[in-house]
Structures are given as C-alpha cells and as structure tokens.
C-alpha cells in the first residue's frame, strides 16, 4: 500500500488490528465459554476480515473503478440501474464477468475459503 506517504509510526493499522486479534485468540477465546466465547470467535473473524481489507482494499478500489470504466460507468449504482433497466442485455456476458470479478474481490476480503479454489487464487 502507500505507507511511505503516511505520517504514522509502526505498527500499521493492519498490524494493530492483528495484535488485538491475536490477543482474542490466545487469551479471550480460551478463558470464556458459551455465548461470550462464540462472540469472541465472531470478533476474531471480523478483525481478520479488516486485516485483509487493509491489505488489498486500496488495490481492489482501483481495480473496481477500472472494471466500471470499461463498461462506461462510474459507480455500482449506475451499473445496478442499467442492469435493472435492461440496457446491458445485448452485452450481458461482459457485465456478468465484471460483476463476478467484483463479487470475488468482496469474498476475498469477507470469507476467502467460501470460494472455489480457482477463485481463491485469482
């Protein structure tokens, strides 16, 4: 990412979140039971998701803008409205391909192992 332009010291934001996640895993998860333990596990998953987004999010934003630009669009709102109005029906494969790539990017942050192996590595 663009850390060389950041005024902050280390740890980076991702490293700070990682440190909290590690504490939840090593201390909180092992000393709780039932509902609190379940919510600790949810919290660990949430922080891991944030770590992934901090790592690849900026790149994904650039890629997504490029995908939209290729379709002559500036936003997901325009894409959604266009699909709904049927204006892409005659080039649906290109739109489907762009939407699929965006969904794969979302899952790469939210829950990578949910995807088929070939999508996980893309």
């Amino acid at each position: 990412m663009t850390n060389e332009q950041s005024p902050h010291d280390v740890p980076t934001a991702a490293q700070l979140v990682e440190s909290v996640r590690e504490w939840l895993q090593s201390d909180v998860l092992t000393s709780t039971t039932g509902r609190v333990q379940f919510h600790s596990r949810v919290a660990i998953n949430v922080l891991a998701m944030v770590e992934r987004e901090l790592t690849v999010g900026a790149r994904q934003t650039i890629d997504h803008a490029a995908r939209l630009a290729e379709l002559g669009l500036a936003s997901d709102a325009e894409l959604a409205a266009g699909i709904r109005a049927g204006v892409f029906d005659d080039r649906i494969e290109a739109v489907v391909s762009a939407v699929r790539s965006a969904v794969v990017d979302k899952l790469a942050v939210a829950n990578p192992t949910y995807m088929r192996p070939d999508d996980q590595s893309s």
Binding site: V42, R91, I92, V96, R100, L107, A110
Partner: peptide, 27 residues
C-alpha cells in the same frame, strides 16, 4: 459481520447462473 455475508449469496448466484445468461440477451 452478517453484512459481509451478503456477498456469499452473490457468489452462489453467479455460480448457479454460469452459462445461463443467454436468456437475457443475444449472446
């Protein structure tokens, strides 16, 4: 956190409809 599970369903829809889009257009 459940808000970030929305895309799991988007992914499943894209898989389920793979190769079935021709009904929308001329491709």
């Amino acid at each position: 956190a459940i808000g970030r599970r929305v895309c799991e369903n988007e992914y499943d829809i894209m898989l389920a409809l793979e190769g079935r889009w021709s009904s929308l257009g001329v491709s």
